[in-house]
């Protein structure tokens, strides 16, 4: 999944796997072998989430046929989930939903496989070169200049618009689920994703909906038991964009329900770097009450891509 762009040409200077000593990836279930499914040699841990972890691996089959860059990312479920009867279905659901999307700003998945020896399912996917937005925020604690923010926000919104049009809800949008690559952002980890009811071409998988969220980015209605919706995706995305703009979470990282109780929405202020013409739309998208969050991802995209009247005129487009 993730690699710093600066590492791309550094394989010779890369620390060898034998210099890093860790316990096997799984401790209760069978440990992950060095080579998974007889094909992927695991090299290092790239990321950890609450529900799974992602490793960088070398595709030995592609390497054998001369592929100069046979690196892939492999996603495994957390061992605790992997032991549950729904575990593999959860991972397959992520695979099926993501494969239903065709967008340059959505991660590309390759295969869903099971290593029969260690009895673990996994997804193979492209190894993205870049850094996740949570890491970007650590490097820009005061937020991003508008031009940079815009270059991330618009393609990201476009990816979400595409997903929603295809009937796919992400349901766990947050900075660590977006990778900023050389050619723009990539949205990934549809592990909590849902297919909207009635969408043609996308079977709703017969697994009990797994109720999970990331507290700082989940809409209030999700925390109160509602199903994920396009509207809850918009809230999470708006939190990410607000944070990217000013370096601060809109609601002090509190769960949305608590932010509502404390009346924090009234205290919302536009981040300094955000142009005034974008604020109204972003503020609406940040509404804690779903009934007042009358903003779709598409409308937010339109608002952020709009050139304000005065600038258009100044640039001579209006005469």
């Amino acid at each position: 999944m993730s690699e710093r762009a600066s590492e791309a040409g550094l394989h010779s200077a890369f620390v060898g796997a034998d210099q890093v000593q860790c316990a096997p990836a799984s401790v209760r279930g069978k440990a992950l072998p060095d080579v998974v499914a007889g094909r992927y040699r695991i090299e290092r841990l790239l990321g950890v989430g609450g529900m799974g972890c992602v490793y960088r691996a070398r595709d030995l089959l592609h390497e054998q046929f001369g592929d100069p860059a046979p690196l892939v990312a492999l996603k495994f479920l957390a061992d605790s989930l992997d032991q549950s009867p729904d575990g593999a279905a959860l991972l397959y659901s992520e695979f099926a939903l993501t494969r239903h999307l065709y967008h340059p700003n959505v991660v590309r998945l390759y295969t869903f496989e099971v290593d029969t020896d260690c009895q673990r399912a996994f997804i193979s996917m492209e190894l993205m070169q870049g850094l996740t937005l949570d890491r970007l925020l650590c490097e820009h604690p005061l937020g991003l200049p508008w031009k940079m923010l815009r270059s991330i926000a618009l393609p990201l919104l476009d990816a979400v618009v595409h997903a929603h049009r295809r009937g796919v809800l992400h349901a766990d949008l947050k900075p660590s689920n977006v990778m900023l690559c050389d050619d723009g952002p990539r949205l990934f980890d549809f592990g909590l994703g849902q297919a909207e009811e009635g969408m043609p071409g996308l079977a709703r998988l017969s697994r009990t909906r797994f109720n999970a969220w990331t507290p700082g980015y989940a809409a209030a209605e999700l925390l109160e038991g509602a199903a994920p919706s396009a509207c809850s995706d918009v809230f999470a995305l708006a939190c990410v964009l607000y944070e990217l703009a000013g370096g601060k979470h809109p609601y002090r990282r509190l769960p949305a329900t608590q932010a509502r109780t404390e009346g924090l929405e009234r205290e919302l202020r536009a981040p300094n770097t955000l142009p005034r013409h974008c604020w109204s739309a972003l503020r609406t998208a940040l509404a804690l009450d779903a009934s007042r969050r009358t903003m779709t991802a598409s409308e937010l995209h339109a608002a952020l891509s709009r050139v304000p009247f005065w600038r258009a005129r100044w640039q001579g487009r209006w005469w």
Binding site: G47, V48, G50, M51, D134, D172, K174, P175, G191, A212
Partner: peptide, 13 residues
């Protein structure tokens, strides 16, 4: 620290 403290998905219950 941020990843482990603020970005982890939490399952209900």
């Amino acid at each position: 620290n941020r990843r482990l403290n603020q970005e982890l998905t939490v399952a209900q219950g």
